[in-house]
Write a protein that binds this DNA or RNA. Structure first.
Lengths: 223, 223
DNA sequence: TGTACATCAGTGAACGCGCGTTCACTGATGTAC
DNA sequence: TGTACATCAGTGAACGCGCGTTCACTGATGTAC
């Protein structure tokens, strides 16, 4: 494809301006991975399909990623970053009430799983990723830190922070995975859009409140 | 099976008494599947490996199971039955206090995941199973019913049963999967056996209590 | 008790597939002079 | 401005693998008579 002046100048930087070199194959492969994961989840992902989707021979990715796990890890790093951003964005709209902030995070967590099920599952498929990847580990730590910090703001006794963070994380995470697995498909009462489990989400997030109230009663005698 | 008197009478029914017909290949394949799943989880399971392990050509399973999903579904049915039995056994030792019974179920749920991680994961890998399998569906329903019934015994308002069952299931299930994924590996305080997350398990199960207490306060004004 | 025969439950070879990875190669780029 | 050359980033063919499934087959079983 010489004389590529009929192509948009640089709106699509991955469109192979010269017909041989790609321009930004690394980014194009990550984008292809994103599309494949979004469409069919982690289980059916293959390196060759990603290369195909990026319009490139299947040997090309080796110049940009060590192996399949390398490409998936690079993509998953961006997923964790999106995940963190989603939680922080929700939290930002929630005002200053600490429990409302926690609910906002939970809503974002579950919403992310629903909106991007393949990406969500990939975040927890350690076997497909390169766990030595420092960028990936850092991005994951950032994600999980959001919830930990928010729980810490709600609990006065430092010894109680970890158990409560684990409880909250477990509940929200378990709910998200069970929703993705279709275990609550007709769980909403009449009047809500069918198939939606948003009602259950709200019940769950509000239902956790007594746990934190009881913490404050236990430690808050002085405050 | 002629003249098989040099074999142990029936202690190992899958030992091929005649060298050609197996005796009980169906059961032997399920046992082989159990071993493979226990050792390496669902991801690496193959039909051929199961046949190999049962000491039989890889075409033989076709006489007993429609396909790979059929064999896995038959095995998973037994897993659900074990899972149900484990929860009921724990519950039976818990006396009559409704919340202690719920804790016992949670302990059994998490304990099962820890003791048989591959089998636990398989129960939730719908993509590998034949979801039209009536026996499998029935066994799964029985498992999930144990928790639902026990929550129902704790909650007076019938409209509250589902949200509370979902909360409990989500928390326990999320914790179990996060534990299996190694997210709480050094979570226990000094003094407990390192690597154990049993302490967190107890914190989590006890931590849920205020949720049910608050339900009773809401509805129990008359009682 | 003996024999013919249908049925069952194995075998082993083959099919077709797609995978990840490696390798020698070559076209394109950009830098040194 | 031109040219030599190292480097980069692709190609396409091949390797070796194991998979699930199908198929014609055959050894063993058990039943009818």
């Amino acid at each position: 494809m010489p004389a590529s002046d009929d192509l948009p100048p640089s709106s699509e930087p991955s469109l192979r301006p010269d017909g041989y070199h790609h321009g930004d194959l690394r980014a194009a492969l990550i984008a292809a991975t994103a599309a494949l994961i979004e469409e069919a989840g982690p289980d059916t992902f293959t390196l060759r399909a990603a290369a195909r989707r990026a319009g490139v021979s299947h040997a090309a990715p080796a110049h940009h990623f060590r192996d399949r796990a390398g490409l998936l890890s690079a993509y998953t790093t961006t997923v964790f970053d999106d995940f963190t951003a989603a939680m922080e964005a929700h939290m930002a709209t929630a005002g200053t009430d600490a429990y409302l902030r926690l609910k906002a995070i939970g809503r974002a967590y579950i919403g992310f799983a629903r909106a991007r099920p393949g990406a969500f599952r990939l975040m927890f498929r350690a076997g497909m990723l390169d766990m030595e990847d420092a960028l990936l580990k850092a991005a994951a730590d950032r994600s999980f830190g959001v919830l930990a910090v928010t729980v810490a703001a709600l609990v006065h006794d430092p010894l109680r922070v970890q158990p409560l963070a684990v409880m909250t994380w477990s509940m929200v995470h378990g709910f998200a995975t069970l929703v993705l697995d279709g275990h609550f498909s007709q769980a909403c009462p009449a009047g809500m859009e069918p198939g939606s489990d948003e009602w259950l989400t709200e019940e769950l997030l509000e239902g956790l409140r007594p746990v934190f109230l009881s913490e404050q009663q236990k430690s808050g005698a002085g405050t």
